[in-house]
Measured scan of single mutants.
Amino acid sequence: GATAVSEWTEYKTADGKTYYYNNRTLESTFEKPQELK
């Protein structure tokens, strides 16, 4: 079976905060997504 690849990509803001962006739902969040835990 195919492994589900996380759609979340980790980015940093200009002031160094980490956030996560989902390229399928176009959602962004500062909290670590469930799929990455």
Rank of each mutant, 00 (worst) to 15 (best):
E10I: 07
T13I: 03
T13S: 07
A4S: 12
A2R: 11
E27G: 03
K37N: 13
S6A: 10
Y19F: 10
A14D: 09
F30L: 06
P33C: 03
G16H: 02
T29I: 07
T18G: 03
Y19A: 09
K12V: 14
E7F: 06
Y20H: 00
E35G: 09
K12D: 03
Y19K: 06
T29N: 03
F30A: 06
T18F: 07
E10W: 04
K12I: 12
E10V: 06
D15W: 04
Y20L: 00
K17S: 05
T9D: 06
G1H: 15
T13A: 06
F30P: 05
T9N: 08
T3I: 12
Y11E: 08
E27Q: 10
D15N: 06
K17T: 10
L36W: 05
D15L: 04
L36G: 08
Y11M: 15
D15M: 03
P33Q: 02
K17M: 08
G16N: 03
E27T: 05
T29Q: 08
G16Q: 02
E31F: 07
Y20S: 00
L36P: 07
T29M: 05
P33W: 02
E35Q: 08
Q34E: 15
R24M: 12
E31P: 02
G16P: 00
E10H: 02
L36D: 08
L26Q: 15
K37V: 15
G1Q: 13
Y21W: 08
K32R: 11
T3S: 14
T29G: 03
L36A: 08
K12E: 07
T3K: 12
K12N: 04
G16A: 01
E7S: 04
T18R: 05
E7Y: 07
T3R: 12
K17Y: 08
E35V: 06
A4T: 13
T25P: 00
Y11L: 15
N23E: 14
W8V: 01
T29F: 05
T13D: 12
E7G: 08
K12T: 13
E31R: 04
T18P: 07
N23P: 07
Y21Q: 08
A2H: 13
V5P: 11
E35R: 04
S28F: 15
E10S: 04
S6W: 09
Y11N: 06
T25I: 01
L26R: 14
Q34C: 15
Y20P: 02
A14N: 09
V5C: 15
E7Q: 06
P33K: 02
T25M: 02
G16E: 03
Y11Q: 10
K37S: 13
R24T: 12
Q34D: 15
K37T: 14
D15Q: 04
V5T: 12
G16M: 01
A4G: 13
F30D: 07
Y19M: 10
G1K: 13
T18E: 05
F30I: 06
T25N: 02
E31K: 05
N23M: 11
T18D: 05
T13Y: 03
E7R: 04
E27M: 07
E10R: 03
K32F: 06
